[in-house]
Computed example of a mutant assay.
Amino acid sequence: MRRRPALAATAVAAALLLGGCSAGASDNDSKPATSAAPQTLTVFAATSLTASFDTLGKAFEKANPGVTVRFDYDGTSTLVTQLSQGAPADVLASADEKNMQTALAQKLIAGNPIDFASNVLEIATAPGNPHHLAGWADLARPGIRVDVCADGVPCGNATAAVEKATGVSLKPISEEQNVGDVLAKVESGDADAGVVYVTDVKGAGAKVTGVAFPEARSAVNTYPIAQTANAANAALAKKFIAFVTGAPGQKVLAAAGFGAPPT
Rank of each mutant, 00 (worst) to 15 (best):
Ala15Tyr: 04
Ala126Thr: 14
Asp115Ile: 03
Gln39Cys: 10
Ile144Phe: 07
Ala160Gln: 12
Ala126Gln: 15
Ser118Asp: 01
Gly257Phe: 04
Gln250Ser: 02
Asn112Ile: 10
Ala15Trp: 06
Ala14Leu: 15
Pro262Val: 12
Ala23Arg: 12
Ala184Ser: 13
Asn221Glu: 09
Val67Lys: 03
Lys171Leu: 13
Ala216Lys: 01
Thr78Val: 13
Glu122Trp: 10
Arg70Thr: 14
Ala158His: 02
Trp136His: 09
Ser174Phe: 05
Phe116Tyr: 07
Gly210Ala: 10
Val179Tyr: 09
Phe240Met: 11
Val179Met: 14
Ala13Leu: 15
Asp96Ile: 04
Ala255Met: 06
Leu236Cys: 03
Ala206Phe: 12
Thr166Val: 09
Leu16Asp: 03
Ala37Trp: 02
Pro130Val: 07
Arg70Met: 03
Thr40Leu: 11
Ile114Val: 14
Ala219Pro: 08
Pro127Phe: 03
Thr68Trp: 08
Pro154Thr: 00
Gly86Trp: 04
Ala226Glu: 00
Asp27Pro: 00
Asp181Leu: 15
Val244Ser: 02
Leu104Ser: 08
Gly259Thr: 00
Glu175Ser: 15
Gly189Trp: 02
Val220Pro: 05
Arg4Phe: 14
Gly194Asp: 10
Val179Gln: 14
Ala161Ser: 09
Leu7Ala: 15
Gly24Asn: 13
Gly246Glu: 00
Gly86Lys: 06
Ser118Met: 00
Pro261Cys: 00
His132Arg: 13
Pro224Tyr: 06
Glu187Ile: 15
Val196Ala: 10
Ala117Lys: 01
Ala110Tyr: 08
Gly111Phe: 05
Val12Gly: 09
Ile123Glu: 13
Ser188Tyr: 13
Thr76His: 01
Gln82Leu: 15
Thr222Met: 06
Lys238Pro: 03
Ala13Ile: 06
Ala219Ile: 03
Asp151Ile: 15
Gly111Trp: 05
Thr199Cys: 09
Arg70Ser: 14
Lys58Tyr: 09
Thr81Ser: 15
Ala45Phe: 09
Asp96Gln: 04
Gly111Ala: 08
Ala140Leu: 08
